[in-house]
Nucleic acid binder design. Structure first.
Lengths: 139, 139
DNA sequence: CTGTATCCAAACCGATACTG
DNA sequence: CAGTATCGGTTTGGATACAG
């Protein structure tokens, strides 16, 4: 251990907080969920509604519009009948994924612990999202 | 690249979202900031108020109380004169750090890009928080 | 110094109903 | 299918003043 315990109050000037820049993009209550369900590829409005059971059409619409304005997602209207719309992460949106995944990993651990009755989970899952990373569809 | 591009709509059932479990703990608007400034060690009420300039005493108090109730932080009153209070991350709170740090790292990248005029930053900083990890005070 | 109390504005959010 | 409109309730959050 190279660190020493601090003896005085607030001797270490805290590093400038850089959390806000990211939280501005993922801070909304539903935003992380939307990004999460979009990370596998483009997805439609109705699909997202089913993905996120508790969300109302109004909120989903509002968040999607907001995220589009911020450049996090891309909205593409397909000229089909009936018309459908696809939402997709932009490059900027994909940059948020590490944060979202880290959040999900912590959430996974928390959930496991809760299921285990409050006792800490020992072995951290190597990558509980291997499944996610291996999305592979042939047709 | 081992992945193939999906050809149909929503063929991949999205993995259960585990983001909510963590967002319940860090979802508040100020919570990530508080955890961030607490990750270097215990910190007092007034210090946090200065650390997070935009926060009001009311909100800071509310968040701290909420986080204490959730077991994320520990509140310790020091029997000094004038009395002071220290807030510290619990084990549970420390488990949230990977997510917070990931958020901060993304925020750092975003900030750099913004400073660079919107162009993407190429080299990812190895650990832009080495400074943070090396808190070391002699006296 | 460490909060709490009150007032008040704005944002968030669900339910429901309706349009193209 | 993909939204929008409206209503109403809850939450968030700042300002200010006050208390232990």
């Amino acid at each position: 251990m190279a660190l020493k315990v601090r003896k005085n109050r607030s001797p270490a000037p805290p590093p400038k907080c850089v959390v806000a820049e990211c939280m501005d993009l993922i801070g909304g209550a539903w935003t992380p969920n939307i990004i999460w369900y979009l990370h596998g590829g483009p997805r439609r409005f109705g699909e997202l509604r089913i993905d996120i059971p508790a969300i109302s059409a109004k909120m989903l619409s509002a968040r999607l519009k907001e995220m589009e304005a911020k450049g996090v997602i891309l909205r593409r209207v397909m000229p089909t009948s009936p018309p459908s719309t696809e939402y997709e992460l932009t490059d900027l949106g994909r940059e948020l994924l590490p944060a979202i995944i880290a959040i999900a990993e912590v959430g996974f651990k928390l959930k496991q612990r809760a299921a285990a009755g409050g006792k800490p989970v020992e072995e951290p899952p190597p990558t509980c999202f291997g499944v996610v990373a291996a999305v592979e569809i042939d047709a």
